[in-house]
Structure formats: C-alpha cells, structure tokens
C-alpha cells in the first residue's frame, strides 16, 4: 500500500541546507496499521507530509497505492488525496466557518459525491455527535472537535488514513476514547492507518511500530 525508498528531505536555512530525513525506507501493507514514534523534531511530521503527498522529497520515492508521488505535480497529488487519503490532525483542522456537518461534508463535496449531507450525518452519528450537527467548531470541546475530524476522515472511506498526533491536544481519558473510536472505525473500514505519535501506548496498538530519531527511521 505504502512504499518509501531512500527518502531524503533537506531544507535551506541561513546556515546552509539542513537534512531532516536521511534516506528513509518504509513499507506498510494495505489494511494494516503502523505507528511512527519519535521525539519532537525527529522528523516524523515531515515524513507524514511526504507520505500523504503534501510535500515534495528532495530525493527518493514514495508509492501510495501503486502510484509514485514523486512523478505527480501538486494538483495530481491533490486528486490522489481526494480519492484515497483521509487525515486526522493534532489541531483538528476544522474550518471554523463551517458547522460540524458541513466540515464532514466538505471532502465529499470536493469529490463530487451527491449524498454528502446524509453521509456526513451518518458518520457524525457513528462518532456520537448526531445532536451536534449544526454546531460550529468553537462551540465544541477538543474531544468533540477531534471526533468531527475523525468523521470527516472516514466519511470519504479512504484507502489510507494519516493521523498526526491525534491525541496530542486532548486529556488522557478523552484521548483514549478517541483512539478507541479511531481503531474501531479503522477495523470496520479496513483502512490502512498511519499514525504519528510520541505516545508509546498508542503505538503499541498498531500492527507495526517504527521509531524515528534525528531523521532516521528504525524498525519495525
């Protein structure tokens, strides 16, 4: 499902180029879950951005569902994201101007799906927010916002779901409920789940565990 070979990422800084990823290799099979753990600044979010086709590598290749992302331009990668990728972010990344339901509808509408409204309602029901449809993000708690984000990610029934520190902004109990929800939906939809976290307990629940340190990937 996901294959990475010799992935290199450097960024220019005032003191010359800084290498963030040092030739990373990685393979994640379809329908499985993988955790990438590491300390802050180890490069795991950069890797996630490259895996999801939101950034371009300096060298090396990323294959997502058999497509080499390095060969695609930004718009082609966006089409691929629209078709196959879902996201859950640490900061939820809901659009503040849209209600919970509208936020969930957005990727469906972008993909041109007609019944966006009813699908959004169904998924919000699955995450337990059936009575929060018309609420705006600022009126929801952190946990509720993350549940909206999960509903949004699964509503498109993506092949791959990327989650970046999904519990990072939540307290332990809420975080646990969110993780249960994530894995439950993942199991039901057979989605490939790639999770970036520094929470070892969360990583342990995944099929594979990679660790990242100073731009190098170790494991599983």
């Amino acid at each position: 499902m996901i294959k990475v070979s010799q992935l290199l990422k450097t960024v220019p800084t005032a003191d010359g180029d800084l290498t963030i990823l040092h030739g990373v290799d990685l393979e994640i099979a379809a329908g499985t879950s993988a955790a990438i753990v590491g300390a802050s600044g180890s490069g795991k979010s950069t890797l996630l951005g490259l895996l999801a086709g939101m950034d371009v590598a300096s060298a090396g290749d990323v294959w997502l569902d058999g497509v080499n992302l390095s060969a695609l331009d930004e718009d082609a990668r966006a089409r691929l994201r629209a078709a196959k990728v879902g996201f859950v972010f640490q900061n939820f990344q809901l659009l503040p101007a849209l209600t919970a339901k509208e936020n969930v509808m957005l990727p469906l509408e972008l993909a041109g799906i007609d019944e966006a409204g009813s699908i959004a309602e169904r998924f919000l029901g699955e995450v337990g927010l059936q009575d929060r449809l018309a609420h705006y993000p600022t009126t929801l708690s952190g946990g509720e916002q993350q549940r909206v984000a999960i509903a949004r990610a699964f509503a498109r029934e993506p092949a791959v779901l990327f989650a970046d520190e999904p519990t990072g902004n939540l307290d332990t109990r809420t975080g646990e409920r969110i993780i249960d929800l994530l894995f439950e939906l993942n199991a039901r939809a057979s989605t490939t789940l790639v999770l970036v976290t520094h929470d070892e307990r969360l990583a342990e629940r995944c099929d594979q565990r990679f660790s990242m340190s100073a731009g190098e990937l170790f494991g599983p």
Binding site: E74, D75, A78, R81, A82, F87, A97, P107, L110
Partner: peptide, 16 residues
C-alpha cells in the same frame, strides 16, 4: 491560508 491548506489536504486542487 490555513483554510486553503485544509481544503488542499482534503484534496482540493489549485485551480479549484
């Protein structure tokens, strides 16, 4: 900018 980044992460393309 952030708004557009979210739209793009959800698959919206530049021309859209």
């Amino acid at each position: 900018t952030q708004y557009v980044a979210i739209l793009k992460s959800l698959g919206a393309q530049s021309p859209e």
